[in-house]
Design a binder for these strands. Structure first.
Length: 479
RNA sequence: GGAGGGUUGGCCGAGCGGUUGAUGGCAGCAGUCUUGAAAACUGCAGUGGGGGAAACUCCACCGGGGGUUCAAAUCCCUCACCCUCCGCCA
């Protein structure tokens, strides 16, 4: 979300951002609606002011004028009964549009329509030249009995993974190692649930735009009951029912219909309660971002630097058929996430961005993986992002780099949605800036670690920095 | 799952239909006093939005939403959360 005042004063900048981010949003309609609201607000407030004045004067009024004042109050109340709801509706509509307004991207971000516009800025490390025919990670897992990819698919469905023996331990060691790196940079370690309420996802920015990427809590029992009920009720809609109720039909038939109407309304209620009011988060960032929602933090409490580990859930809608093999793209994975809430200062945010990117690179260096750094273009970065850098690590079997890290600066876009404020040096409440970045996500990183560090005999070398966490130098076959 | 009790400004805590945007205390800021600090005293001080050069002024907000009333922090409904007791349980 942007400051509405800023949008009013700089519509051309916002319009430019909408174009650069390849969004469909009618800024003209938004501004028109805003103007309409301002007028409606003035009108409503004038009536409210008079109403307040009259209500205040009644206790001290004499009995003769009192009925007159009460009558006037009643009239104003009637007037407000139409003004207030319509204002509320307009404001809700505006809020819906405001949620779609993008953050103005950094001037240094390349302009492009999609990931084809991303620019590689650096390569670190050189892909290894194998003196034997290397296996891909799935073959390595099968050869060493390090997982149950096919079995778990039968149990949990596609995009699931199960690890065994050394590889299962390796996943834990990696997460612990990444946590350690974050602790060394003075981040506060946290664990959080992987689920939250709807408004948390709105604050984060994933809702309303990317709602289909998120799994939800639902009540399966209620759903089944409802389906059974639906099979018994043949009405297409409530209006169809109403039509029947209003028609002249025999009274006993009518009573049936009334009973059905009650049943129908009851079902609507239950459908609503079965839909669930909680959602599974795709990253700890979602919850961390709401940790201080609604608070006004003191300046000296900032920055809040958090490293949190959590299971992450992604529906992967729209990715059907892509990366179905192996560990690249799964519905549930684990991640150590970096998240920062800080004062609203562009330079400090840029410095923090570099620091967080540095943490990821430190981890990749320790994992001894070749990677490249991409400056993500305007059309590929999220709506709310100010700047985004992705890191892709080398996958020998694909002869390609694949995304393992994503570092973002949002400036105040998330903070405005979420209500993340602090008192600046003048004591004024201000929205903060937020940033986030992957520290390490498993199991995807295992793809790179297995393939890049495999030995000719199919075992896999553990990088030196990981060995204290793994307790051994080589991953050995599992029984 | 059952039965009660709560949710008020940065924090604590009054108020339970009518100058209450909210008594009081703590913390905060400014001043008096003091060499300085502390203490004491005095004053300022919520959040968001509108108007105004300013003084100032108007609107909304006492967990969220809805309602009753000329008038709601105060009454009613509903949702969320917290606490206590019972039941169940990793």
């Amino acid at each position: 979300m942007l400051d509405l005042k800023f949008i009013r004063e700089h519509p051309e900048i916002v319009r430019d951002a909408i174009v650069k981010k390849n969004l469909k949003l009618d800024l003209g309609a938004l501004l028109e609606l805003d103007a309409k609201i301002q007028a409606a607000k003035k009108q409503t407030e004038d009536v409210q002011a008079e109403s307040n004045r009259i209500a205040k004067s009644i206790p001290s009024a004499d009995t003769a004028t009192r009925p007159e004042l009460i009558a006037r109050g009643k009239a104003l109340k009637t007037e407000l009964a139409t003004l207030e709801p319509s204002l509320r509706d307009l404001e809700a509509e505006l809020r819906g549009l405001m949620l779609q307004v993008p953050q103005i991207p950094w001037v240094g971000s390349p302009v492009g329509p999609d990931d084809s516009g991303n620019i590689e800025t650096r390569r670190v490390g050189t892909p290894r030249a194998f003196d034997f025919a290397p296996l891909d990670h799935v073959a390595l897992i099968e050869k060493n009995n390090w997982g149950d990819l096919e079995r778990i698919a039968r149990i949990s469905g596609s995009r699931s993974y199960a690890l065994r023996g050394d590889l299962a331990l390796y996943e834990q060691a990696l997460l612990r190692f990444a946590t350690q790196v974050m602790l060394e940079d003075d981040f506060t370690f946290m664990t959080l649930p992987s689920y939250a309420r709807e408004e948390v996802f709105v604050g984060h920015g994933q809702f309303p735009a990317a709602r289909d990427q998120v799994f939800t809590f639902e009540n399966e029992t209620l759903k089944k009951e409802l389906i059974n009920d639906l099979k018994q009720v043949s009405f297409a809609s409530e209006s169809a029912q109403q039509e029947l109720l209003n028609s002249s039909i025999a009274s006993d038939r009518r009573r049936d219909l009334l009973e059905w109407k009650e049943l129908f309304q009851n079902m609507i209620k239950r459908i609503e309660s079965s839909m669930g009011d909680r959602f599974l988060s795709g990253t700890a960032e979602v919850l961390l971002n709401s940790l201080h929602a609604g608070e006004i933090l003191e300046l000296d409490a900032l920055p809040k630097t958090y490293a949190a580990i959590s299971p992450c859930f992604r529906a992967e809608a729209g990715a059907a058929g892509r990366d179905t093999r192996g560990l690249i793209r799964v519905h549930q994975f684990n991640k150590v996430e970096q998240y920062v809430l800080m004062a609203a200062d562009a330079d400090q945010s840029a410095a923090m961005f570099d620091r967080m990117l540095g943490n990821s690179e430190k981890i990749l260096a320790a994992l001894e993986l070749p990677y490249r750094v991409l400056e993500v273009c305007t059309g590929d970065m999220g709506t709310g992002k100010f700047r985004q850098i992705d890191i892709e690590s080398w996958v020998p079997s694909e002869n390609a780099y694949r995304e393992t890290h994503s570092c973002s600066a949002l400036h105040d876009w998330q903070a405005r949605r979420t209500g993340l404020r602090y008192r600046d040096a003048d004591g004024k409440p201000r929205f903060g800036f937020t940033l986030n970045n992957t520290a390490l996500a498993t199991p995807r990183i295992l793809v790179m670690l297995l393939e890049n560090h495999q030995n000719a005999d199919g075992t896999v070398r553990v990088p030196l920095a990981l060995q204290p966490f793994m307790g051994k130098a080589t991953l050995e076959p599992s029984r």
